[in-house]
C-alpha cells in the first residue's frame, strides 16, 4: 500500500515535468488509434452489408442429367468436402419445369407442347452466411465446375467479386494501420520516456546511490508509458465514436443505413484495442528505460 502511494506520488510529480511531450504522445497515440479503429469499424460494417446481401445467395449447378440417389449422395459428399454449406437442394427437370411455369403464371400456356424435361436438372447450393464463405465463392464455383456431369455453375451476382476485392483491400489497410499503431505507440512512447529520463537523470542517479532497486526506478516509467497508452487510446476511441455519430447524422434519411445498420465497435473490441495500446506503450517505455539502469 505504502509502495503504491509513494509510486503514484512520484509518477504524477514526474509527469508534470515533461507535460508537453507527454501531450504530444497522447495525441499521436490517439490519432493512430483513431485511424486504426476507423478502418476496423468500416470493415466490420462492410461485413454486415456483405452478410446481409448474401442472404439470398446460392450457387446453381446445372447438370447433364438427373442424378440417381447414389450419385446425389456422391455429389453431396464432394460439395461438403470443399466447404460447409447451409443447404443443398436437388432440382430435377420436372421440378424446374413446374417452378418455371409457376413463375410464368397466366402466361404458362406458352409452355404447352414443350416436353417437361426440357430444362436441365440442377443442384442448388446455399453457402453459409459468413464472410469467409462469401470470399471463397469464386473458388467454390470453380471447384463445382470440375465435378463430373456438371454443365455450368451460376452464382449470378457480379457484386460478390467486387465485394470480395473490397474486403481484401480493407484487410490490407487494417494490417497497415495496425502496424502504424504499433510503431507509433512503441516508438513515440519510447521517445517521450527518453525525454523524461533525461529530464530526471539527476534524480535517477541519486535514487541509484541511495539504494533504490531496479524496479523502484523503472516502475514509474512503466506506469507513465501505460498511462500514455491508456489516455491516447480512450480518447482515440472517443473521437471515433463522435465521428460515427456524425456520419450517422449526415446520412440519416432513406439511405443505405436504413437497410443495413451502421453499428459501432463492440465492447470486447474496444477493450481489446485499449488494452493492446496500453500494453504496447508500456512495452515501449520498458525498452527505453533499459539502458539507464546500467548506470
Amino acid at each position: 500500500m505504502r509502495f503504491f502511494t509513494t509510486l503514484l506520488l512520484h509518477t504524477s510529480r514526474d509527469l508534470l515535468l515533461t507535460w508537453k511531450s507527454q501531450l504530444m504522445t497522447v495525441f499521436t497515440v490517439m490519432l493512430s488509434v483513431l485511424i486504426f479503429s476507423f478502418f476496423y469499424l468500416t470493415y466490420v460494417n462492410a461485413l454486415h452489408v456483405g452478410t446481409e446481401m448474401g442472404n439470398d445467395l446460392r450457387l446453381v449447378v446445372y447438370l447433364d442429367e438427373d442424378p440417381p440417389p447414389p450419385l446425389q449422395d456422391e455429389y453431396r459428399r464432394r460439395i461438403l468436402k470443399f466447404d460447409q454449406v447451409e443447404r443443398i437442394k436437388f432440382v430435377n427437370s420436372q421440378e424446374a419445369y413446374q417452378r418455371f411455369s409457376k413463375q410464368l403464371g397466366s402466361d404458362s400456356d406458352v409452355l404447352s407442347g414443350v416436353p417437361d424435361d426440357f430444362l436441365p436438372p440442377s443442384i442448388e447450393v446455399y453457402p453459409l452466411r459468413s464472410l469467409d464463405s462469401l470470399a471463397r465463392i469464386k473458388r467454390f464455383s470453380d471447384y463445382l465446375e470440375t465435378l463430373p456431369g456438371v454443365q455450368k455453375v451460376l452464382y449470378g451476382k457480379e457484386w460478390i467479386d467486387h465485394f470480395h476485392a473490397f474486403i481484401q483491400l480493407m484487410r490490407i489497410v487494417i494490417i497497415l494501420s495496425g502496424f502504424l499503431l504499433i510503431m507509433t505507440s512503441t516508438f513515440m512512447v519510447a521517445y517521450t520516456i527518453q525525454l523524461s529520463l533525461f529530464s530526471r537523470v539527476q534524480k535517477l542517479e541519486l535514487l541509484r546511490l541511495v539504494g533504490a532497486t531496479t524496479n523502484y526506478i523503472r516502475m514509474p516509467f512503466l506506469i507513465e508509458g501505460a498511462l500514455l497508452g491508456l489516455f491516447g487510446s480512450t480518447t482515440g476511441i472517443a473521437a471515433l465514436y463522435l465521428l460515427h455519430r456524425w456520419i450517422k447524422l449526415q446520412f440519416s434519411g432513406p439511405t443505405l443505413f436504413n437497410l443495413v445498420p451502421f453499428t459501432f465497435l463492440s465492447w470486447p473490441t474496444i477493450t481489446g484495442i485499449v488494452t493492446a495500446a496500453t500494453l504496447l506503450c508500456a512495452l515501449g517505455s520498458f525498452r527505453a528505460t533499459r539502458p539507464i539502469l546500467h548506470l
Binding site: R208, V210, A212, T214, L293, L295
Partner: peptide, 22 residues
Amino acid sequence: NHRTIHLLRRKIGVAYQDFKLL
C-alpha cells in the same frame, strides 16, 4: 551488479563532496 547494488547502498550513507542534492 545492477540488480544487487542496492543491497550495498542501503547499508552505507554517503555525504558527497558535491552534495548531489536535487
